[in-house]
Design a binder for these strands. Structure first.
Lengths: 336, 336
DNA sequence: CTTTAAAATGTAAACGTTGACATGTAATTT
DNA sequence: AAATTACATGTCAACGTTTACATTTTAAAG
């Protein structure tokens, strides 16, 4: 691998053709693996010329010619959230395994930002768009209508025309509700995400239904709509523990639960004796840093394979992608 | 925005030209903002035609023509690590602000994987490659030589020919060492990353130098090379606390510290009375979940602006990028 | 009403790649 | 030895954009 072009423009298929004394078509054949129609010695010559020139085929030229990209855009609410990060990492790994690159972008839970990202994404002509935690906007619905390769993760699509990968949020909410009922958490509160997030809506719905169906006299003394952050959990936790004094709180993600926990410990409450905190997601870090957190485990690392299977460019079938509903479970941690 | 082409190929500049009755050049002018040479009414016609067709300029065609991409590849060791996630999110946000998209890829701290990613990245003809936590391999050095737009984050480049954004690792290690000396942590241990990571090498070097220069009879009773994970911290922690029983441990990142902490609490030790644990990075989550952790704070969220300033496509100057050394600080947490 | 300058728009080539098709060469059959 | 086949390679157009340059239209000046 010599220094032919230390810093000039990258070598092209033409350069390689010239150096190896063949045509560009042959070079292309070598690099696209159509090696059954090219002589072994020619392959060798092309390979070594390419090596010498430091040639790597341009995805740009390739994409233009083939009218397809190997890029997938993943839109996430907040990649610094542990759960999001795990899902994104899992997806990236699985996509790479089928030859796709992932461009990642954060919406910060902002609908306008999401819409802007959707527009930008279109410019890249991506192989697909994965949207984790979609926010229901007109633009989103428009994109669903127009786009064949759009996958929803975690939060189901507002209209059932695009595939979904995630858990059954309503059933999950129901499971938490049943747990509350079984443990006699009569007076309870719930801190949930904004109701235009489908997942939050469904979790709340399932939760309330479970309480109702339990027969017991369960009372949700406070339903709080909140950003899904530690800071918000802390603030709402402080208010909640001063005013309503619930026996248990259902937080719609673990970050909220961390915040409530801090508020609770500052108030001198013991978990779970005085206050049961129920989270959602079960971030991997919980085993290490939150041994007090009972939560609903979502298998973050299983998202990648499911998504990649849908988007695999080598997929033979032409039929539309089908939803993947992953299993959830309860992680009960009662130690202090 | 009507439904002209519900799901066909995306509209092109030619389609827009045809519908609006102008030439492709004019359409291009409108979309590249060269609006001073095109009549207002024409702009309007083009805009509405584009709207009607749902036209978004193709970055592919654009990139091919201009021989530049608006894509930046960011290679990280592990995006599920809190610190990495924060840095990546910060970088993504800042890049987007200057019109760049970020493709993210994980090496999993694997040199071969890193090298593969570097090759793949080249195919995308990215505007730049950002490498967080580089591993010193021959391929890496080759890429440094050939590539003008390569930025090192957190871990400095093995040869000083590429710009770096991060803290002064040796000074940081020194600061920790001095803290140990001041607190009389005579018998101490250090769990560090592999020595072919420049940052780990420098942190260790600074740390040892501080101990030596302190004059006190500081004794590093154990130096452990380890993966930078919670699991590894736990395992090494258990071994360390059984065998060597140090008064203090310096962990080269917070994840290690979490693991050691768990080992320590399982052994019934009190932090920091019986064992002082010193971390590195100061993940944002510490304030909420690790109030016991004294650590060296690296300003993760300041990385993005620094990197983006280097890579801004609108940057006027042609001169090479200069290193950005960010300030660090100690975060002392002594509560239990 | 010309002439000239300024403004608006059009023409066409190039960017790097691939694949259908054409051409050339060597091996096999008649 | 001619005809046929199989294999190896080459030619060239197309993908969607942008821009230098050419051309047309409009406005200003004479």
């Amino acid at each position: 691998m010599s220094q032919h072009r230390i810093m000039g423009k990258p070598a092209t298929v033409h350069d390689v053709a010239r150096v190896s004394g063949v045509s560009t078509a042959t070079v292309s054949r070598v690099f696209t693996g159509k090696t059954d129609t090219v002589a072994p010695k020619t392959i060798e010559r092309v390979r070594s010329a390419a090596n010498e020139l430091g040639y790597t085929p341009s995805e740009i030229g390739r994409s233009l010619r083939l009218a397809t990209t190997r890029v997938v855009v993943m839109i996430v609410p907040d990649a610094t959230n542990n759960f999001c990060a795990d899902v994104a990492a899992s997806v990236e790994k699985s996509l790479k395994a089928v030859g796709l690159s992932m461009v990642l972008a954060n919406t910060g839970e902002d609908g306008d930002q999401q819409d802007r990202l959707l527009t930008d994404a279109a410019g890249l002509r991506p192989h697909a768009i994965i949207i984790h935690g979609a926010i229901d906007t007109p633009k989103l619905r428009e994109v669903i209508e127009k786009n064949r390769n759009l996958v929803f993760v975690s939060r189901p699509p507002p209209i059932a025309k695009a595939p979904f990968v995630g858990i059954d949020n309503e059933a999950a909410g129901f499971a938490v509700g049943r747990y509350f009922a079984e443990h006699g958490y009569q007076d309870c509160a719930v801190i949930h995400g904004q109701q235009h997030y489908s997942a939050s809506r469904l979790r709340l719905k399932g939760f309330l239904r479970a309480l109702q169906e339990s027969g017991a006299d369960m009372d949700v003394i406070r339903k709080i709509e909140s950003p899904l952050s530690m800071e918000a959990g802390y603030q709402h936790g402080l208010a909640l523990l001063s005013d309503d004094k619930p026996r248990a709180v259902f937080c719609h993600n673990d970050m909220l639960a961390y915040g409530v926990h801090r508020a609770a410990t500052e108030k001198g409450l013991r978990i779970p004796e005085n206050l049961a905190i129920f989270g959602f997601d079960d971030n991997r870090i919980n085993d290490w840093l939150a041994p007090w957190l009972t939560t609903l485990k979502v298998p973050a690392l299983d998202f990648g394979p499911a998504v990649a299977a849908m988007l695999d460019p080598n997929r033979k079938t032409r039929k539309p992608m089908e939803d993947v509903v992953l299993p959830f479970s309860l992680t009960i941690r009662e130690s202090a």
